[in-house]
Structures are given as structure tokens and as C-alpha cells.
């Protein structure tokens, strides 16, 4: 178990440091409110009373990790136990809404991205006219258009899943196009010559050489793409919040200063991102290992 000592211990140390900073930050940020309360009540706070208060306020500036954890449990596990896993107040419900928009957009974006990349690799005119725009569009803050897309689509009768998925699709589309174009071009001159000596058709070269060679590039872009899809879905939920979703939870929380609710939605989103990227990573590991391409 050398791995435990050489990798896990440093990671745990850094994570522990983050928690210490978090608790210390909670004391610092919440102390003003604690002192105000004490002043009004005409009592003076000892240090331990101050700490206890800052870690247990109802609407703290920065809730402690245990408060967020309790809120997450209350809105997920506890509701499952009561058989209300999909009630409107449950984070599972909101998470599911965000996840379905993310997945729909991700699948569509990846599909279109791969198709466009195949076109770009096989057609010089397409390569030279589309590729500069694809690269340039990566420097443009696309996410900023997200609310507009949602509002406009709503006004022409598309609501719910579709507008958010379109944003997710758009965000996962570009990394896949760029990565796949690189990947489909990754076979070297010798491998392409070899296909030529066998008089292989373009289609045979694509299926037997280009696509398998592009797998490492594809998975790298998929990881970026799925994270971007999730961000897109969350931002897409900001302007219209009656449909629910993690983004809507954040916005509603910020309207009513429900900081614990914002943090719990945020951490749920983070966990969701981690799980999604982790799944892509696992599939990547298994596939590349089977293909003998793992490093």
C-alpha cells in the first residue's frame, strides 16, 4: 500500500487544510452577527461561545461544513427514508432535473461534435472555413448567452428540458470538435501510407485506423465536455426557476439569503460533476487499457 502513503496522505492533508480554513473563515465572517446579537442581549461572549454561535447560525454568511452536510442529508437521505425522494423540496429531485438536461445536451453535443470532426478531417474546404471559427468561438464567453437562449426559447413555446439541453449541447460540442479533429488526425504518416499500400478506402481507414487512434483524445474532450455541460445546465436554470434544478435552488437561495441552501445546492452540483467526470474517467481507463493504449 505504497499508494496510500505517497498519494492519499498528501491529498488528505490538503483537504484537511481546506476544512480548517473553512471553519476559521466561518468564525471570521459570522462573528459580526454573533457580536451584534450579544450586544443587543447585553451579554459578552467568551471565545468558545463565539465559536459555537458562528458555527450554528440560521442564516450565516458562511455556514460550517457540518451545517451544509446536515442540510444535504435533510433534503436527500432523510427524504428517501420518508419515501419522498422526489418531492419538490428534495435535492434529489432538483439534481435529477439538472442531470437529465446535462445528459441530453452532452449526448447530442458529443454526437454532433464527432460528426463535424469527421467532416472537417475529410473535407479541406470544411476544415479551412469552419475550424478557425470553432477555435475562435472558444475564446468567446458563450455561457453569457445562456439566459437569453432560455428566455427566447420559452417565449416560442419550448420550456423545461430542451432550452437547457441546448446550452449544454453547445458547451460540450466545441471541446469534442477540437479534440476529435486532433484525434482523427493523430495517425502518423507511416500508418496512413500503410493503409494506402493496402488500397484501403476512406471509410475503411476511418473505421479501422482513425477512430481507434482518436480514443485517447475523445475521452479527454469528453471529460471537459461533461463538466461544461453541467455548468451549462446550471446556468440555464438561472433565469427561469419555477422548473426547479440545482441552478434554480441557488438563485432562490440568493433571493432569500438562504446561504445554507445555496451551499448545499453548490456542493451537490460539485458532487454531481465529480461523479460524472469520474464515470467518464473509469470508462476511459477500462477502454484504453483494453486497447493497449493506457500509459
Amino acid at each position: 500500500m505504497i499508494w496510500l502513503r505517497s498519494s492519499l496522505l498528501p491529498i488528505l492533508t490538503v483537504v484537511a487544510a481546506i476544512f480548517v480554513l473553512w471553519y476559521a473563515g466561518a468564525v471570521g465572517l459570522n462573528s459580526k452577527w454573533a457580536y451584534d446579537k450579544a450586544n443587543r442581549a447585553g451579554v459578552t461572549l467568551s471565545f468558545s461561545e463565539l465559536v459555537a454561535d458562528t458555527w450554528s447560525q440560521e442564516k450565516p454568511k458562511l455556514p460550517g461544513p457540518h451545517q451544509v452536510a446536515a442540510e444535504i442529508w435533510k433534503t436527500t437521505g432523510a427524504m428517501v427514508l420518508r419515501g419522498k425522494a422526489f418531492s419538490k423540496r428534495s435535492l434529489i429531485f432538483h439534481g435529477w432535473i439538472t442531470l437529465s438536461a446535462t445528459m441530453l445536451g452532452f449526448v447530442l453535443g458529443t454526437g454532433f461534435g464527432i460528426l463535424l470532426a469527421i467532416g472537417i478531417v475529410h473535407n479541406r474546404a470544411m476544415d479551412m472555413s469552419v475550424m478557425p471559427w470553432v477555435i475562435a468561438s472558444q475564446t468567446i464567453p458563450i455561457l453569457a448567452i445562456a439566459p437569453m437562449v432560455v428566455v427566447v426559447m420559452n417565449s416560442i413555446g419550448f420550456s423545461g428540458l430542451v432550452p437547457k439541453s441546448i446550452i449544454s449541447m453547445y458547451l460540450s460540442f466545441f471541446p469534442v470538435v477540437v479534440g476529435m479533429t486532433k484525434g482523427l488526425r493523430s495517425p502518423d504518416a507511416m500508418q496512413m501510407d500503410q493503409m494506402r499500400t493496402w488500397n484501403a478506402s476512406k471509410w475503411q481507414t476511418l473505421i479501422r485506423l482513425r477512430l481507434p487512434s482518436s480514443m485517447p483524445y475523445l475521452f479527454t474532450s469528453l471529460k471537459v465536455g461533461i463538466a461544461a455541460s453541467l455548468v451549462g445546465a446550471i446556468v440555464g436554470e438561472l433565469p427561469i426557476n419555477q422548473d426547479g434544478g440545482l441552478g434554480a435552488r441557488m438563485l432562490v437561495g440568493s433571493y432569500y439569503s438562504q446561504t445554507i441552501q445555496i451551499w448545499s445546492a453548490l456542493l451537490t452540483a460539485a458532487a454531481l460533476a465529480a461523479v460524472l467526470v469520474g464515470i467518464v474517467g473509469l470508462v476511459q481507463g477500462a477502454t484504453l487499457k483494453r486497447m493497449g493504449m493506457a500509459r
Partner: peptide
């Protein structure tokens, strides 16, 4: 001749597909 697959070509590197 290439269309008729008249020759086999061996490159400097083996160029075998790892998958």
C-alpha cells in the same frame, strides 16, 4: 499495381496496432 495489391510493404517501424 497498388490497386491490384501486387506488393507488401514493410516500414521501418513495425507499426502494429496496440488494440
Amino acid at each position: 499495381a497498388r490497386m491490384a495489391r501486387a506488393y507488401g510493404y514493410v516500414f521501418q517501424a513495425a507499426g502494429l496496432y496496440p488494440w
